[in-house]
Nucleic acid binder design. Sequence first.
DNA 1: GCCACCGGTTGATCTGCATCAAGGACTGTC
DNA 2: GACAGTCCTTGATGCAGATCAACCGGTGGC
Lengths: 247, 247
Amino acid sequence: MTAQDQKLLTDCSDCPIRHRAVCSRCEPNELDLLESMKYYRSFEAGQTVVWSGDRMDFVGSVVSGVATLTQTMEDGRTQMVGLLLPSDFIGRPGRDSSPYDVVAVTDVVMCCFRRAPFETLITETPHVAQRLLQMTLDDLDAAREWMLVLGRKTAREKIASLLLIIARRDSALQGGTGLGPVSFDLPLTREAMADYLGLTLETVSRQISALRKAGVISLEGKRHVTIPDIAALMEEAADDADGGFLV
Amino acid sequence: MTAQDQKLLTDCSDCPIRHRAVCSRCEPNELDLLESMKYYRSFEAGQTVVWSGDRMDFVGSVVSGVATLTQTMEDGRTQMVGLLLPSDFIGRPGRDSSPYDVVAVTDVVMCCFRRAPFETLITETPHVAQRLLQMTLDDLDAAREWMLVLGRKTAREKIASLLLIIARRDSALQGGTGLGPVSFDLPLTREAMADYLGLTLETVSRQISALRKAGVISLEGKRHVTIPDIAALMEEAADDADGGFLV
DNA sequence: GCCACCGGTTGATCTGCATCAAGGACTGTC
DNA sequence: GACAGTCCTTGATGCAGATCAACCGGTGGC
């Protein structure tokens, strides 16, 4: 870890997710309080952050990296139910265990708070509670959007929809223009994409190849994707034009 | 409307959803404020409450009846993304239009607040905001549970899962024991069930017949369902035993 | 009393994706 | 330099659920 990284990890005012996370609405004095409570945790790619059903005595935000929320049935079928990107929040006030597995898919740094103090905090600092409500409503909208994908879209449309989501989140974070070619690394394996989309990994692989052959996307290696024409990809995703370029 | 009904519709202290809705945490003085702001709206079965994209200048709770939240793609494919039962909340503070169609599937009575005053209210009465956060987190969990159903369950498991959800919500409202045979009316048509489950109405019909022939459920007419053995239905739904008999 | 319509059931056939199977590219290890 | 392991691709085949189609029963209009 460089000295620069270390600074980012100690001073809230330099935090890369300062303007998007639960703390984004805080007044300076509230931020001081959070600053004194917070601690950082790091997870390596592949490491499980919390197991479904296990006790969870902290809540927190993803600072960097990507994690997933998954549910698994007794016979092993698994469905991803959330993709946690930087600034996303994990944990629920008022509940002491996670109903989902939380897994780091890349190296992840989280900004954490112990659950009990955080719970008293949200009853007392309205700006945190308000921001948490807003973020939860956004998550709910995203989940409902995803229900349409899972329930009604074809395999090809599902892949296009996932690529769009990642492209949008990515460019929102990088501050891209939203115009011209977009390029990013897929943070997920084919299998993880399959779990997100309710498909098999073979189908994911075939549909990515199909989109490549159709010229809708191009690949360098297996993970780096370039989208020459976002509108064409939206067409493939059967996305309504609304939603635009926002997350 | 009988005099009794009229009373239920004017006095919060007798309201059937008093202990579950957004107002359930309110202190008496907060409740007085809400009482003075609220107004009732009725919708007939089949009537659209709000169209997707339309301006929505109120928020509110379902007092009685059942409504649905649906998304429709340009080519007509539709996916239900929420089932609104009594005490459920509609509308989002900070947004002036609905991203979903809201449709009454039975006659519905709603307890409404104009959006602007409600928004100022939630910044000032923490108990409403806290309850709204809790309800939104519950909705998010329900949506994620549903993602597993949509993404990974078979048609038969989907039907069993839906029947379980309705049975649970129903018995929670009626205060049933959770043991012994359970019996209820389906509020949804076969087509609406198909839209909820990401199936066609023919498949819904076939799977209901199959569950009936297998003795897992019995039907009187097309809508009244009796479940002789809840555990057997849970088996069919491939539900983990957790979740138990709560909503 | 006739007809139209709506919600539902059931049958025949088709098809998109799952499943089963083989092998390639790359990485790290000894 | 051989190897094992991980991630991915591609091909062959099977099947669950979609699609197309016919028909049933109840209900409301006139």
